[in-house]
Nucleic acid binder design. Structure first.
Lengths: 342, 342
DNA sequence: ATTGGCACTCGGTCAGAACGAGTGCCAGGA
DNA sequence: TCCTGGCACTCGTTCTGACCGAGTGCCAAT
């Protein structure tokens, strides 16, 4: 019983099941693939695959269906690359090309990916912790409030209002603005060190609370993971795809609506930022997502480099077209990176 | 045959149908409501209501179900106010109270409303066209690019990058920044008139393109309706609610994902900004939403006044609890307005 | 190691029967 | 004029039992 053929059988089962959505039996398998052996032989192989926990039969007399483990093996060792068609590539390019600002780029990317994969697409906004500060702006609002606007390298803007104990002095604010920007502009949080906290020494003691307040807000914003945002598209594909999970969409939608869940997942998948990584079923470690798989990759890093700025990905049913999804995710991430770099 | 009782019957039908999700027959009706007449009499009334197009029977021998028109009459003339419970009010208040910035307020509001109504909640970001400008900031980026940051009254921030023909002169940019802010700060788009376009006259001809470019971006941003954003929550409730439309969720999700559709609808419903307005079924004028109703109201205006800044609302199945939804939407809008004003 | 044959399991489908909820209509009564 | 009880009728729902077919596991033969 050749090991190679057994894997061929597994591949065939995955492919057929993905294509037909129905448990695949031994007869159908030999008919659709040129395996060169009889159904009976396939049955023996299938029994072995089932013992190995790679496939199961839903009912006693039904065909076989891949398990999480089966899909995992398929993705890791059996999937063959499936390059996008030329028209698809061109579509991606032109669609992303004429985006206006960062919001627009993200919006277009996520819609595009949803359409390419016919699944739910997920795009994480460029992470603040990994982007450099471009500019900090201080805008007095009334006597006791100060609006702090933080602009990052990728054009993302965050704002906070802080309350100050003493009435604001315009000159002090202006000086603080200059000092802040010379100290921080162009640097990442990690590179800032004590540069910001030392600023307070340059001001009169009476201004200490003000300076420390502003510095705290800036550092806080850059550090705060909870401020990271995720955008979705294509949730309608969850149901339109046909009775995939039909009666269990609800938990999936709930999970997807929880930014926290998505951010954790994306964070966990970031081990190798340049490569595409896949989480299958229970590997997501989330109850609502046991019947879904995630395919994600980093984007925004220098070409081929290892320092991605955020992640983009696709969520679909366990039995999704892994090679196709991987190709689409990778392609969109690549163009997205190019746009952001340009 | 008293007209009053016929309306009582309609109200009873709507209430029972909403509660049970099943067509309601004459017998069940007299049992559950003290109408003081026999089923046969009710049947006559029902026949009349059906002739009037207010109810229909799904099958020849089934109970009656309200039509769009029936719900409309119910909402307009039969619904009785259903005040929120004290705990509910307190929950709203405390939940919204400790929100940090605008994003947080909007996010909390939409989740809260989704949870209160067990439906999909929709919150429109404060409309740029109706808010006043607080501050405009210009940040040179390299030699030829200028980042324009626009901060509005409600703390919303928009940014655009523009390309300029000639290398930037820092002094000119600084001067432009000051002039822009004195001319525009605190005003709405409608109040600006030609104040901005006249600015170009104050600068050297060589700076004309720069000034006009910046002015154009500012005006464009304030005017651009497409920049208005809508946030959703509770899409999982669409399916969880039970087989409401079960096999037709897809078009609903698709419609909800299209910001354009939502913005059009919210816009159309803004006739009377202070009141709660309701769109039932086909009244939404959108194919994917024929089986859904919208309940929305404005928020952000002065208490009781007529100048709302944006809308908040709830989307649910045709047979939803209109009184309850209306109460929830109104309550959240009120607290939301208070937070924004404070 | 592969193959053909065979008995067995079991989900899906179909037809028919029984059921019951609900209606419309009509004739009689307040 | 309006209400009521009665009655025949419709029709969707549910249940049953039979049948079909896909698919399996095992075994003896090659």
């Amino acid at each position: 019983m050749s090991e190679d053929r057994r894997l061929d059988v597994l591949r065939a089962i995955v492919e057929d099941y993905v294509a037909t959505r129905e448990p695949v039996g031994s007869r159908a398998l030999v008919e659709r693939h040129s395996l060169g052996v009889s159904p009976a032989t396939i049955r023996n192989d299938m029994a072995a695959l089932e013992d190995a926990g790679l496939i199961v039969q839903p009912h006693t007399s039904a065909g076989r269906v891949p398990t999480d483990k089966g899909y995992r093996l398929f993705v890791d060792r059996l999937a063959t690359v499936k390059p996008l068609s030329a028209p698809e590539r061109r579509a991606i390019e032109t669609f992303l090309e004429d985006a206006a600002d960062l919001d627009d780029v993200v919006d277009r990317s996520v819609r595009l990916l949803a359409q390419l994969t016919h699944q739910v697409a997920v795009v994480q906004y460029p992470s603040l912790r990994r982007t450099a500060l471009r500019h900090v702006e201080l805008v007095p609002v009334g006597d006791r409030h100060l609006l702090v606007v933080i602009i990052t390298d990728h054009g993302r803007v965050e704002q906070r209002t802080i309350e100050v104990p003493d009435p604001l002095d315009v000159a002090t604010v202006a000086r603080l603005r200059v000092r802040l920007n010379t100290a921080a502009a162009g640097r990442r949080l990690a590179e800032l060190g004590t540069a910001l906290s030392d600023l307070a020494d340059d001001f009169a003691p009476v201004d200490g609370p003000l300076v420390r307040g502003v510095v705290a807000v800036v550092e806080d914003t850059l550090a705060q993971e909870s401020e990271e945002r995720v955008v979705l598209a294509g949730t309608a594909n969850l149901v339109r795809g046909g009775g995939d999970f039909a009666h269990t969409i609800s938990p999936v939608l709930e999970a997807l609506e929880e930014q926290v869940v998505l951010l954790r997942l994306l964070g966990e998948m970031a081990e190798d930022e340049a490569a595409v990584s896949v989480r299958i079923g229970r590997e997501t470690q989330h109850e609502g997502l046991v019947e879904t798989s995630f395919v994600t990759t980093g984007y925004g890093g220098p070409d081929g480099g290892g320092t991605a700025v955020a992640r983009i990905g696709s969520v679909g049913p366990l039995r999704m077209d892994y090679p196709g999804t991987i190709a689409s995710v990778r392609a969109v991430a690549r163009y997205l990176s190019r746009i952001l770099a340009g």
